[in-house]
Amino acid sequence: MDSFKVLEIKESVFADNDREAERLREALRRKKVFLLNLMASPGAGKTTLLTRTIETLGNEMRIGVMEADIDSDVDAKTISKTGAKVIQLHTGGMCHLDAEMTKQGLEGLGTDDMDLVILENVGNLVCPAEFDTGASRNAMILSVPEGDDKPLKYPLMFSVSDVLIINKIDAAGIFDFDFEACAQRARKINPDIRIIPVSAKTGEGIGEWADWLRASVRQWRGE
């Protein structure tokens, strides 16, 4: 097959997504919309934390929510009870969201009258860490029952997150979760990570989380 020639491409398959994510982030900055990408494993308490967050900040900023799931709309139904504007995204079997899907979700939600949009990513500690969604900041939840060894097992997730929320601290008494060991492991991977222990169920620690989020939104909007 002498007639065949070789075209050298040498480009990362993820480069397109990274470029799209950067464009989306810039567009959001211009529109003064803060996009939070919330990641965690299934059952860590993403939806419960979101409900608490909307209760706490809902009267001082306009909040929209994008619920990403492989299927179902149970989370969107829960969030809609808070009164926040919510849209359900179905990934159709995909285990993560990419920048293009996030952009389509934002268009569906409508961001003209939003200060803060929270993207509840697919429950998974692996794949969502690999794909930049274009979010202003990344947050992750690790819940006490999951164990303090998770930074060792899923280092990439901890390295891309700006804030680590340790949820279900109300259940700490029945699990042997070592907060100090967990923090050390997380900071070894990501020295700048902010760690906030909360109980989305009882409300403990939610004030500190809301403070972080409020300050981040204001900074993003140049206030």
Binding site: K5, V6, L7, E8, I9, K10, E11
Partner: peptide, 11 residues
């Protein structure tokens, strides 16, 4: 950590 399209052989 790479996932690249290295080359395409075509005519």
């Amino acid at each position: 950590r790479e996932f690249n399209i290295k080359e395409i052989r075509a005519c």
